[in-house]
Amino acid sequence: MSSDAALRADALGKRFGRRGGWALRDCSFRLPAGRVCAVVGPNGAGKSTLLALAAGLTAPTEGSVTVLGTTPAAARPRVGFVAQDKPLYPQLTIAETLRMGADLNPEHWDAAVAEQVVTGGGLDPKARIRSLSGGQRTRVALALAVGKRPELLLLDEPMADLDPLARHELMGTLMAQAAQYGTTIVMSSHVVAELEDSCDHLLLVGGGRIRLSGEIDELLAAHLRVTGAADAGGLDAATVVESRVTGRQLTALVRPAGPLPGDWRTSAPSLEELILAHLRNPGAPALHEESAA
């Protein structure tokens, strides 16, 4: 397989405890380097498990995950990870935390961007971590991860406890990193709108499986929203993700195999429509549009 994948999963599965259920199962996908990938799914879908596996914090029960062409443990110096609970040392000050980041990453610490992330929030460098609010801790955790200037950034719900202004500012900082250094960014959220403009790649996780994976443009182009008469027929050739009949009208989200008969009105679905239709219909077949690039 091509070596330019930043992240690759092959039949990846994780079960917690011998009798526990599968948090993730049969996950296979490949994320090319330089992409900004949204990991979307409802609560408990397996998003955090997937990111923890990629970060090497937990080992797969079956299958494998490849990070920057190697194992998660070997890739760790080149990966920045921000876990959902933002673990930091509560007794350290912000300045001490950033100094620790510099000491741990002597080769490639970017003090300027780390300080920019922290000062953007008007934080006092002398403040102790334990005195910070959730959103302020997020800032410090992001400063540590971005300052490391990693090739791959894994962010678990990075925006969840930030106000809209901080969200926009920090997303801008992340995008600037991607633009300047080609950093691959993987970030999870259950709010699609939050990621729509910033991401170009999607992993939709539902029920511990990958439901959709690929370039967002390609995934959108593979689907159509159609409306027509309930008895019109002609959708047999397409894969129907979701369909609903209201009175005499049928509305559906489909993956057409070829041109549809002319009596269907078609339009392009939005990303949110695409994702919700798949989450509402767990039986709909998965789609993997892995680009050859």
């Binding site: 600037a176 633009a179 403009d197």
Partner: peptide, 16 residues
Amino acid sequence: TAREVVEATAINPNTV
């Protein structure tokens, strides 16, 4: 530059 645009707008660099 793409960097300047995405830093201000938070959109994906490939879009620019």
